[in-house]
Design a protein around this nucleic acid. Structure first.
Length: 306
DNA sequence: TGGGAAAGCAGCCCTCCATG
DNA sequence: CATGGAGGGCTGCTTTCCCA
């Protein structure tokens, strides 16, 4: 028998999903005004919502600066939970809206993002819509977009420099920093003395990671030699794990046996790639829009750890 | 130009009460 | 006991203004 007199009072706090959605938008956009545009509210409404959320939690979530806002450590902590709660909420709505949905959806994803994000997205989608068949193609972004335009795919994920992809009808779902990687524990000077060319493992011609990496090296006047080329992320990572060369991948792709090389390595800084989602909308095929929601939510999740 | 505060307003929701 | 309508309070929004 539980003696209720010794129990601490239950907290009355709750986290309204509306406010969490605004919170996620503000944290990602770094602005209450921009967040307001995204959630269809005014800047003042966003400001008040965030103030109420902070009061509810008794924690400061944002550092307010002159023209921007940024997350406090408590805000960072909440962000992960908020994204998971919103994902579950959206999944539940989608599942209840059309639990008996059937059909086939053709999804295209670049190889490196397929490895990281697809398993979770596909398993959640299959649990919610077991009667929908999903066919996945792994190809470079440009090829996927061509297949989408030809009607051979229903939706695809593509990487690019943001503005271009959005002009092509894509919806931005994430920004992913590129990083130099080497074998875990690698002392870079053992394979590169800065006079000889830097040994590189890179993706195929036409890959954005490759182009940006080579441009950054050119700009920094660092000679290089392509010692390994592949279309497969798995092969690139395996080559890197050999400890004989370095490569460039999205931060989310760094796996066991590899480590990101910081600025102390002497390698030039790299930009971030924009990840966009492109959909051939078809009102007669709701499964396409549903899978698009799941993919988008998958990219909103924290990067799965190794 | 963007965030915060105050005032005013609309709509939601809870409570109460009548009705079947 | 369930349901539906009325009334009042509360919540959350927009507008406006001020400050950095």
């Amino acid at each position: 028998m539980i003696d209720e007199k010794v129990l601490p009072p239950l907290p009355l706090n709750h986290l309204p999903l509306d406010a969490l959605r605004t919170f996620v938008a503000a944290s990602e956009l770094g602005s209450f005004t921009q967040a307001g545009h995204q959630v269809h509210r005014t800047q003042s409404a966003v400001s008040m919502q965030m103030k109420r959320l902070e009061e509810e939690l008794g924690r400061r979530l944002f550092e307010r600066k002159a023209r921007t806002v940024s997350l406090t450590p408590d805000g960072e902590l909440l962000l992960g939970y908020a994204k998971r709660m919103l994902r579950l909420h959206d999944e539940a709505l989608a599942s209840l809206a059309a639990p008996e949905m059937t059909g086939q959806v053709r999804l295209g994803v670049p190889d490196d993002y397929a490895t990281r994000y697809l398993p979770g997205v596909l398993s959640r989608f299959a649990r919610s819509f077991p009667k929908v068949r999903v066919d996945v193609w792994c190809r470079p972004s440009n090829e996927l977009l061509a297949h989408l335009a030809a009607g051979e795919l229903d939706l695809c994920v593509a990487t690019g420099d943001g503005a271009d992809r959005v002009k092509q009808g894509g919806k931005m779902v994430s920004r992913m920093p590129l990083v130099w990687i080497g074998a875990k524990g690698l002392a870079l000077e053992t394979i590169w003395n800065k006079q000889d060319p830097l040994p590189l493992a890179v993706f195929h011609e036409g890959c954005l990671h490759r182009r940006w990496a080579l441009e950054a090296l050119d700009k920094a006047d660092i000679p290089f030699r392509i010692a390994f080329g592949s279309m497969s992320l798995g092969a690139i990572l395996a080559a890197v794990r050999s400890g004989l060369l370095v490569s460039v991948v999205a931060r989310s792709s760094v796996d066991q046996g590899c480590a990101a090389l910081g600025p102390e390595s002497g390698l030039p800084p790299l930009p971030s790639v924009t990840v966009t989602l492109h959909v051939n909308e078809d009102p007669k095929r709701p499964a396409v829009a549903c899978l698009a929601q799941f993919v988008e939510a998958g990219f909103a999740e924290p990067v799965p750890s190794n």
